[in-house]
Structure formats: structure tokens, C-alpha cells
């Protein structure tokens, strides 16, 4: 198997923007994303002796950044927990019997409008920005990283039923936001 090498002198130029975008979709605030990238480079540099060359330099840096982001969320765990509790309590979409509230009832979408235009992607982005921090984190791991439910639960230390409640609530909210802003 080919052994990979590290070239720290090229990291910032080669991977800076990529890592920034990776962090940005996860933490939202640009300053925080930039600090996490900076932190990643410094941590990686210190960890060079542990690099065994089994994965590429790029993937290794992504791994370091991912750990930094999870650490960041663990520090914010209280926010995450109160967020989840809130998700459980109030429901803006279903009544206490679990039926759709009248004004939230999904309408049929005209399929010819369901194209992925730039305009639509902008609306999608605006709608995902409205998700709560825990919803956004779960969504990123699920859709952008393509992680399995089991792994996400383990990494965030949440139960499977908690996970599905978050995914469900987020999707109901997102769908409604798209319907209001795109279909009307």
C-alpha cells in the first residue's frame, strides 16, 4: 500500500478553503469556523508523529477538523440538550392528537417547479439556516457526511428515538419553509 506524506508548509494554501467550508456548514458563524480551521492546522502539526501514512493528508486533516467540531459541540452540550427538549415539548405542526394543524397541512407541489435552480438552492439554504443548532448538526452529519443513524447517535450520545424525533421535526419544518417560499 502506498504511504502518504505530510507537507505542512502547503496546508493553508491547499486545504484552507476546503476546510473552512466544511466547518462553515457545521458551525454557521464564520469566525468560529475560521478559528476551528486554524486550530486544526496547529493540532495536526503537533500530531505529526502519530501520522502513520495510512490515509491521505487531506483526509487526515478532515478527521482532525471533524474532531474539533465535535469537541466544540460537546462544549455546547447544554444548548444541544435544551434544544432537544424543546423539540419534544412544543409542536407547531401537529395537534395533540398528532393530526396536521390546518394551516400546516402539506399541499401538493407542482412537479414542474421542482427543479434545482440557483433560486431554489438559495431558498433551501435560507430554510436550513432556520434549523436549530442540534437539527443543523444532525442534518449535516446525515446528508453532507452521509453518516448512518447509528454512528450519529454514538457520536452525539443520543438515543435512536431522540435522533428520529430530531430528523422528523427538522424535515417537517424544512418542508413547510420550502412550500411557503418556493411554491407560492
Amino acid at each position: 500500500m502506498q504511504k502518504h506524506n505530510l507537507e505542512p508548509e502547503n496546508w493553508v494554501e491547499k486545504y484552507g478553503d476546503m476546510l473552512l467550508n466544511y466547518a462553515l456548514v457545521r458551525v454557521k458563524e464564520r469566525d468560529m469556523a475560521r478559528d476551528l480551521v486554524q486550530d486544526t492546522f496547529v493540532t495536526a502539526l503537533k500530531s505529526i508523529p502519530t501520522f502513520r501514512g495510512e490515509i491521505s493528508e487531506k483526509n487526515w486533516l478532515y478527521l482532525v477538523l471533524k474532531t474539533r467540531i465535535l469537541d466544540y459541540y460537546k462544549k455546547k452540550k447544554e444548548v444541544l440538550e435544551s434544544d432537544m427538549k424543546k423539540d419534544d415539548e412544543d409542536d407547531d405542526y401537529f395537534n395533540d392528537k398528532g393530526h396536521w394543524l390546518k394551516d400546516k397541512l402539506p399541499n401538493e407541489w407542482t412537479t414542474e417547479r421542482m427543479v434545482e435552480s440557483e433560486e431554489f438552492m438559495a431558498i433551501l439554504k435560507a430554510c436550513t439556516d432556520k434549523l436549530t443548532p442540534s437539527q443543523a448538526l444532525v442534518f449535516t452529519m446525515k446528508y453532507l457526511d452521509g453518516e448512518e443513524a447509528d454512528d450519529i447517535c454514538k457520536e452525539l450520545n443520543i438515543s435512536a428515538s431522540n435522533y428520529w424525533v430530531i430528523v422528523h421535526r427538522a424535515k417537517v419544518q424544512l418542508r413547510n419553509c420550502l412550500e411557503i417560499n418556493w411554491m407560492s
Partner: peptide, 24 residues
């Protein structure tokens, strides 16, 4: 709910294409 199902599956597909393009 049937409409929801169709729309949700479609949203899943497009969500995978969502990226940002920022630079340092």
C-alpha cells in the same frame, strides 16, 4: 401525508447537494 412522503424523498436528494463556497 402521501404528498409529504413524495416531497420529503425529493428534499433528501437535493440536500445532498448543498454546499457553501467561502474562502479564506
Amino acid at each position: 401525508c402521501a404528498d409529504y412522503g413524495i416531497q420529503s424523498a425529493w428534499i433528501d436528494k437535493v440536500l445532498k447537494n448543498l454546499h457553501t463556497h467561502d474562502q479564506l
